[in-house]
Design a protein around this nucleic acid. Structure first.
Length: 291
DNA sequence: CACTCGTGGGG
DNA sequence: TCCCCAAGAGT
């Protein structure tokens, strides 16, 4: 197969987006913060929150010193607030157990809260220039198309995905740029819907050479949102983010009147997740309010 | 492995 | 309008 490395790297040099966490003066911790925020949240929404976040809390220890409630407020409406809680926990572990320095090896990173297979490799590669395969949804889609000639990635099978990318990965000097370029291609050209193949820098693509066969994967279950517990949790948390002192149960109840059992279940799950706490007098607040 | 967990912009 | 889905992780 034609070597895609120079094609991809040259394209990235020309076309890369100017994202703040890619700049050379950004610390490993700040890269890690960006990776937490980018888990399932689009770049455009992350950017302003990341800027404010790293200006306010530039290090793990600074983040750990903040209250959980302030962390949840700074997270704002990025979604999946458990990520904010895990980021706070991650900062605490790094500050206390690792001398305020983000670990650089994948194995250690994987032991930290909120860091899984993707984020561990992204930090090792992008923050520490390690030659490790970085596999996210964009990379899996690009490899499925360009290498395997399929419209979509197969359901995630980590070992095989890692091996696929490992086979493409150049030497250490070029590996980080290659991996970020692969992700960038998937994010801006080889997109899930309406890929812009006319703008693709790859001279060889198995999917194209096979005539763009349609997806054979069974239609994915739609991820409904309206009416789910997640929506109720979102509304409850939105009330608490806007208040700096505990609120009564009645003030929370008004956000979801149609199904009181569901509302109770959602509030209970927020307590279980440690995102919300109940005061001695029975009112509710963001976890860690007042810490 | 299947499922849960927020939010909002674009096709 | 409605639906898809966006740099995943944990259970």
């Amino acid at each position: 197969m034609t070597d895609i490395v120079p094609q991809l790297v040259d394209w990235y040099d020309r076309e890369q987006r100017d994202l703040p966490w890619r700049r050379p003066d950004v610390s490993p911790w700040q890269v890690l913060v960006s990776e937490f925020m980018l888990q399932q949240t689009p770049v455009a929404r992350v950017e302003p929150v990341w800027r404010a976040w790293v200006a306010r809390w530039p290090t793990p220890s600074a983040t750990a010193a903040a209250s959980a409630a302030d962390v949840l407020r700074a997270w704002g409406k990025l979604g999946y607030p458990r990520r904010a809680k895990r980021l706070h926990e991650c900062a605490t572990v790094i500050a206390t157990d690792f001398g305020d320095a983000v670990p650089s090896d994948v194995e250690t990173l994987l032991t930290l809260p909120g860091i899984g297979a993707y984020t561990a490799r992204a930090v090792a590669c992008f923050a520490y220039r390690r030659r490790v395969p970085v596999v996210d949804t964009n990379v899996r889609r690009v490899v499925a198309r360009a290498v395997h000639g399929r419209a979509d990635a197969a359901p995630s099978s980590s070992p095989r995905d890692l091996a696929d990318v490992e086979a493409l990965l150049p030497d250490e000097a070029l590996a980080p740029k290659f991996s970020i370029a692969l992700m960038e291609l998937g994010a801006t050209v080889c997109t899930a819907r309406a890929p812009r193949c006319a703008s693709c820098p790859l001279s060889v693509c198995a999917w194209r050479s096979r005539g763009f066969p349609a997806s054979t994967a069974p239609a994915r279950r739609v991820q409904r949102y309206a009416g789910t517990d997640r929506q109720v949790r979102g509304r409850l948390l939105d009330v608490l983010r806007g208040r700096d002192s505990p609120v009564t149960r009645a003030e929370l109840d008004v956000v979801w009147l149609s199904d009181t059992a569901q509302r109770d279940r959602a509030l209970d799950s927020l307590l279980v997740d440690g995102l919300v706490e109940q005061t001695a007098d029975g009112r509710f607040a963001l976890a860690g309010e007042g810490d």
